[in-house]
Structures are given as structure tokens and as C-alpha cells.
């Protein structure tokens, strides 16, 4: 059964926010099924806020922890405002849709280098994460 574990129960900030978002998401069976299928680690780096959080997926569990995780399967780096906009963007095939203004704005930030993604070959994990966090 899908569940979220926070490594440090006293964690605040982005760690608590991501854990809260995923906990809320998996109350719906479709999102819980997405989490059940996820394997790997995603590190989210927010340089302007100087925070880094990792999410480790496997066995239906998402373990969220603060701090650098160099071994993450996928590493996403983006400014705070872009990160908070991301869950609200309409998706196409698991990625921000270029048909929507928000999706095009996101693509521009990628092209400008504001958003950096490493581990792009793990497209499935990225798409699953986008779908899991999507608020639409």
C-alpha cells in the first residue's frame, strides 16, 4: 500500500511540503497506483532557496529526506517559483504541455538554463513524478 515516510519527523520546509503533497495525492487510488509503480530516487534542488530534498521510491513507499543525494537517479534543479508552479501545469504524456501558456513558460525556463534536469533517460520516473504531484 502506498505510503510516505519522512526521514526526519521534525523536517520542515520543502521536505514537509513535498511529503504533504504526496500524502494528499495518494488518497486517490490512481495516484497511489502511480506511487506503487515508482522505482528510483529523485533529488530536487532549489538553488535560490538553498535547499535540496530527495525522494526515494520503491515498494510503494516514498521516503523523503533533506540534504544532498548525489546518487539520485534523477536530479532536478530549478528556482523556487518554478517548482511551486510545476504541480499546477497541465501535463501531456506526463510532462508540462506545450499547448498551455504555463507549459511554454516552463520550457522557456528549461531552455534558459534556469531548470536543469539530469537523468533524463529515466523519463518514466520523471513522468510518474509529474503525474503524482499534479494538482489538476
Amino acid at each position: 500500500m502506498a505510503q510516505v515516510v519522512v526521514a526526519d519527523p521534525e523536517a520542515a520546509g520543502l521536505t514537509a511540503m513535498l511529503a504533504g503533497l504526496i500524502e494528499a495525492a495518494i488518497t486517490t487510488p490512481a495516484k497511489a497506483a502511480i506511487l506503487d509503480a515508482m522505482r528510483g530516487s529523485v533529488a530536487i534542488v532549489v538553488p535560490d532557496a538553498e535547499v535540496e530534498v530527495a525522494m526515494h521510491f520503491g515498494g510503494g513507499v516514498c521516503r523523503v529526506e533533506s540534504g544532498p543525494t548525489p546518487s539520485a537517479t534523477v536530479r532536478l534543479s530549478m528556482p523556487a517559483d518554478v517548482l511551486l508552479d510545476l504541480p499546477s501545469l497541465p501535463l501531456f504524456a506526463g510532462f508540462p504541455s506545450l499547448l498551455a501558456p504555463g507549459g511554454r513558460a516552463f520550457a522557456r525556463r528549461v531552455l534558459a538554463g534556469d531548470v536543469q534536469i539530469s537523468g533524463m533517460r529515466h523519463l518514466r520516473l520523471l513522468a510518474q513524478l509529474n503525474r503524482l504531484l499534479a494538482l489538476g
Binding site: 520546509g13 504533504g20 535547499v51 517548482l83
Partner: peptide
């Protein structure tokens, strides 16, 4: 500040 935990937020995160 919210991301850094300097402002603590309680409520429905989505």
C-alpha cells in the same frame, strides 16, 4: 522562507 522552513505552514498543502 516556506521552502527553508523559516515560515512554517500548516494546512492542506495542495
Amino acid at each position: 522562507a516556506m521552502m527553508q522552513g523559516k515560515l512554517k505552514v500548516k494546512g492542506d498543502l495542495p
